[in-house]
Design a protein around this nucleic acid. Structure first.
Lengths: 141, 141
DNA sequence: GTAATTGCAAATACTTTGCCACGTA
DNA sequence: TACGTGGCAAAGTATTTGCAATTAC
């Protein structure tokens, strides 16, 4: 099992969660995915399909989001997307409004300075941001 | 009626929409609001409450989004948010994850260069972006 | 042993559509 | 007149919860 997986499970344990098979498989699944996934996708994924009920995945995601281990994203679809939150890592996304494809933006995120400024000026705590680009991908154009 | 309202209605007319009372009230309501609004908020708003059904507001928003007059935003809630799209204007948002308050970010958006770069490198068309900051506001902290 | 976790089914929330009446151009 | 619009009610989709059984610690 990869380094990141064990570290993430440790973070869950430290946050008071129990180490269940479903938790492990969920984390591995999210980590394997190059892009955020919906609840339905997760529940239907190879690793989780026979492992547990959709409600379980839902509640796991809920707890993990509460503990800051996963993040829930909007991304313009009706369904919410979830992604693992790895300390020190940040990802922006590029989304095709026609076919719904989602890919990670490779360039560094230009928002951190503004984020610091907002933190200073507004007194918001636990500040983070979400940045998404939308458009029509070459294949759909 | 303000300049922007008539211009926006003109854009709708140009896009082939009919000028109805509901359309006008919807546009004025969105323009009056300092932040994006949900379908429910719009349908229950003073101007629209007695004017038309929720389904009508829904279909109006749908048409307007199609024509590029309004934009549908995620913003992390279960309900979608809508905002008027004024040419040459762009807005980022600061959202409290505790109380759900939404305010517009006053500072200029630092993402346009990256957007240009993505447009060039990926060949995406009609590119735009959405940037939101999330955190705990001073009142909730 | 005890509290967290789970499955299953039922309840919610928000969105979306069908169908026929109506109003704008 | 013709076609976009509107109201009302029903259907759809994704999420969320209740409760009793199970499992991790």
């Amino acid at each position: 099992m990869s380094e990141v997986v064990t570290q993430t499970i440790d973070r869950c344990r430290a946050a008071g969660l129990r180490r269940t098979k479903a938790l492990e498989e969920l984390i591995v699944t999210l980590l394997d995915s190059p892009r955020p996934m919906t609840l339905s996708e997760l529940a239907a994924s190879e690793r989780l399909r026979d492992q547990c009920d959709k409600a379980t995945v839902f509640r796991l995601l809920q707890r993990l989001a509460e503990k800051g281990v996963v993040r829930r994203l909007g991304l313009h679809e009706r369904a919410a997307y979830f992604t693992l939150l790895i300390p020190g890592r940040h990802q922006d996304y590029l989304i095709c409004t026609e076919c719904g494809s989602i890919e990670a933006v490779k360039a560094p995120c230009p928002v951190h300075e503004l984020e610091d400024e907002i933190r200073r000026k507004t007194g918001f705590r636990n500040l983070y941001h979400e940045l998404e680009f939308f458009g029509t991908c070459p294949a759909c154009a």
